[in-house]
């Protein structure tokens, strides 16, 4: 039998070792994923990826040009709709209605929306846009992404504006500035880089979103800039190509995955850098 003292030490050592091992396990999965992405995707990252459109079934040559352009467009529309709305709603929560009952409800609902299943948002946009208009379109994909952007931006905007000390608001008010001027010229300006960070985070979030695009933007094998048409985009292309039977489709899916992951990781690291220099 071990003495109580030795047993406590043993339990401690065992559990702390286990804790270190779980951390290694988490890091191991991160590196495994990144390793696989580079191994399978890097060799296919060449110019033809950016200059040629998607190959059809059985076609040998091809790239992802239309999907890349489509993804940029959809992400752009999503951010252009979602970010202003999000910033304004965040402004209300931080400035005008800080303690009102409606702000409490909005905060609560916003946090729920932040993690709401994105596929349901796809179904919702299908019902309000695709079904009435009778066709899949880039616009509906953009709207679906915007609904995902809003809660992210609302949250960070409110947090960042609240970091601005009240003394600054009072100083501006004492100079005779009306409330709206205090908010736009003082608070928004002071919180600007933080809010930008939130928007970048939202971009990173929607860059890889697939589920809401499946029945809104759908996908398009051909190059188009027409937002009224189904629009090619990277995530759905990766999904279709990965599930498809052709080897060159799989290769392109890996190359696309690597592209998205790199973009998302760079955005994330950038935002971290932004926030750290701010503090």
């Amino acid at each position: 039998m071990l003495s109580v003292y030795a047993r406590r030490k043993l339990i401690n050592a065992f559990n702390l070792t286990a804790s270190a091992l779980t951390t290694l396990l988490g890091l191991f999965f991160l590196f495994w994923l990144l390793w696989v992405l580079f191994q399978k995707g890097f060799s296919h990252l060449d110019w033809s990826l950016f200059t040629q459109d998607m190959p059809g079934p059985g076609e040998e040559e091809g790239g992802l040009r239309n999907a890349i352009v489509g993804s940029l467009l959809l992400t752009g529309v999503g951010v252009l709709i979602g970010a202003p709305l999000g910033v304004l709603a965040g402004t209300y929560l931080a400035e005008f209605g800080r303690h009102s009952w409606i702000a409490h409800i909005v905060r609560f609902i916003n946090d729920v929306l932040l993690s709401a299943p994105s596929i349901v948002i796809g179904v919702f946009v299908y019902e309000i846009m695709v079904a009435p208009m009778g066709r899949f379109s880039g616009w509906s994909g953009g709207v679906a992404l915007a609904i995902i952007v809003i809660p992210v931006v609302v949250r960070t905007t409110e947090d960042m504006m609240r970091l601005v000390p009240d003394a600054m608001r009072e100083a501006a008010a004492a100079l005779g500035a009306p409330r709206w001027k205090v908010v736009t010229d003082v608070v928004l300006k002071a919180a600007r880089s933080g809010i930008m960070t939130g928007i970048l985070l939202a971009v990173a979030r929607i860059a890889g979103e697939t589920a809401p695009l499946l029945f809104t933007a759908l996908n398009n094998q051909f190059f188009t800039l027409d937002m009224n048409q189904p629009m090619g985009n990277l995530p759905v292309t990766i999904f279709n190509f990965a599930m498809g039977p052709y080897d060159n489709w799989h290769d392109l899916a890996w190359a696309g995955s690597l592209l998205i992951t790199l973009a998302v990781l760079v955005l994330n690291i950038l935002t971290r850098f932004f926030l750290r220099t701010k503090k």
Binding site: L30, L33, L37, G208, E209, T210, I238, V264, L265
Partner: peptide
């Protein structure tokens, strides 16, 4: 590093 794991899009997890 652990938080970056959360940033990777879910479709990448699917492929992998």
């Amino acid at each position: 590093a652990i938080e970056l794991l959360a940033a990777i899009p879910s479709i990448i997890y699917g492929m992998w």
